[in-house]
Amino acid sequence: MGRLKFLPAAAALAFLWAPIAVLAAYSFTASRHATVWGGFSLAWYARVFENPALGPALGNTLAVGLASATLATALGTALALSLERRRAPALDALAHLPLLVPEIVMAVGLLVLFARFLRPALAPLGLEFSSLPAVVAGHVAFQIPYVMVVVRARLKDLDPSLEEAALDLGATPAQAFLRVTLPFLAPAVLAGACLSLSLSLDDFYVTYFCTAGGSGFRTLPLHIYAMQGRAGMTPEVNALATLMLGASMGLVGVSVWLQRKSHA
């Protein structure tokens, strides 16, 4: 019996990791087909780095990721601070609910908002709401609650008398925030930023729907989608996906490590 009780957990983990393992394993195949093992090779990784279309896609992905993570971290932290300091259950629920909204719903909602309202409203002013800011805005929208949750967990440990002590010693409220509250929150804020960045890097739905039609704006996930549609899947897709997986896992790892460290 003793060993058997690990069986369900082992089965669940195997099911969870099997696609990822297969994906990663076949990124090293020498074959032309993503599903055929033709011996070990790093050729597809070389192809990834040589592919001229990937440069702009990677650039877009990083630009969207860094910009959206920065904005979402600032806004999510501000939201966490304001919600933690008042009893507002309704606002609380509103702030958490987007975590439960299916991403496709969010994506379609953003599409309608941008295409139907924002772009027409800006057009007469001679302003164009191009793909990059649209995708950044979309990413910020779904990242905010994640940052808020992470920062609030830390904020609950903040002794309110610390800020009072800073005021008492002559600090203005702004100084107290910058010198005491923010350093205390820093690990959680950074963790929230890492989480946001990793969410942004592999996002498909919101990116796909926020991209202005015909602009040709592509991030890596959009590029992968296009690659497999066009020429059938080559292991180049596996290689690229494995690299992205590594980057995401690294970011989530850093995020978890920062949160653990701040709770120690």
Partner: peptide, 12 residues
């Protein structure tokens, strides 16, 4: 200046 009951020393 106030000496707080829980001291309120800045942990960082």
């Amino acid at each position: 200046n106030l000496v707080f009951q829980n001291y309120a020393l800045f942990p960082h």
